[in-house]
Design a protein around this nucleic acid. Structure first.
Lengths: 196, 196
DNA sequence: ACCTTAATGCGACATAGTTGCGTCTGATCC
DNA sequence: GGATCAGACGCAACTATGTCGCATTAAGGT
């Protein structure tokens, strides 16, 4: 549900949606976040404000849609030949992208205009899919792997927590530290109990 | 900074602040969240809207203030005689309060209307203080303890991540599972490296 | 090609947010 | 205790944003 469900997926509706999304991106790039208002976006997109209000309901929900679209990873995680290297690289990149000022803004937008939580859930699914890809590749190499849930709990969640609640504590080696701890703990019994 | 910095802490300013906060709480309790608008709050508080706009700037920042005030724990964590019991009980209570619909709403409010991140940071400080109290008490009993950062990373952060991004995955035993994993891992070498 | 239905545009209206200015109150200094 | 100063508040006019009914247009199915 990154775009709103479109009962009429083709033609004008699709053009309007793309035009509005483009207007949001352009306006933000040119005049910054403060200039983002529904009337301004509508004018830029060549659309009446009421169209936006009807389709998205709210500036926040529109921004949430655009944010989720931007947070979608374009490529599968890079293969570095080992689980440790793959996870570390991916986590570092994740932390860098999400922890940047614009990344934080997108995450906040995604959380913000999201009455039912589906957009935020989509972000989590994106991360879980990437992790899943890394893990299954490692499994193909006959490496010992943790569950997806363990990685979400002990790598993704701590990074996101600091991004949202403690932005001052984002060190460059934090991602590496978390990944190392999770993989080292693979030998201890408690981490093999699986999720939940 | 739970209330805005008040250049004039006494008398009328304090009365206005308390009156506005009370109006927010009452209106939300009586008519629900949708009824919360600045004019409505101002009318209920016996204040003109412009006062609220000048002091808080925005409905979101006002709600963020009220939310942080509500998220502050009233009492120190209960003493159950052991680190495991103390942490488990506290985490379960934390998850229950924060994961409830109203708790999620407060967290979202606190994150939302928070330009500089200080309100969200305050929430994290509240949790860290509670954990700190539990740990230092356990230290007094000569128990082996993890660092505050380890608990924040592997207990608090995963719970908060699910609350915000995956509200469907909140099981009753999730808090217990996380606490158990952290305390069991105390014997493994990787968890004694400390934070960062 | 026609028909049905949903999406859009338009404009009037309601609500929310902004600003300048005068008044009042709390704090500080004598 | 009284005078002075600065900041907070109320008021009111104004602007911007959000809502709604109705006519029009276009997409999908027959």
């Amino acid at each position: 549900m990154s775009p709103k469900p479109m009962a009429r997926p083709g033609g004008r509706s699709a053009r309007v949606q793309e035009s509005v999304h483009a207007a949001v991106r352009e306006l933000e790039a040119e005049q910054g976040r403060a200039a983002l208002s529904v009337p301004a976006i509508a004018a830029r997109a060549g659309v009446t404000p009421s169209t936006i209000y009807r389709r998205w309901g709210d500036l926040r929900e529109l921004l949430s849609d655009v944010a989720v679209e931007r947070l979608r990873p374009e490529e599968p995680p890079v293969d570095h030949g080992s689980l440790h290297a793959d996870l570390t690289t991916w986590a570092q990149q994740f932390l860098e992208e999400m922890g940047s000022p614009s990344g934080r803004a997108y995450i906040r937008d995604a959380l913000l205009g999201d009455p039912d939580g589906s957009n935020a859930g989509q972000c989590s699914v994106y991360a879980a899919d990437q992790v899943e890809a890394i893990l299954s590749r490692a499994l193909g190499r006959a490496e010992a792997i943790p569950t997806v849930e363990v990685v979400m709990d002990h790598v993704v969640a701590p990074m996101m927590y600091r991004i949202l609640f403690r932005p001052g504590l984002l060190g460059a080696d934090y991602a590496e530290h978390l990944v190392h701890a999770v993989l080292t703990a693979l030998d201890s019994p408690s981490s093999r109990r699986g999720p939940q």
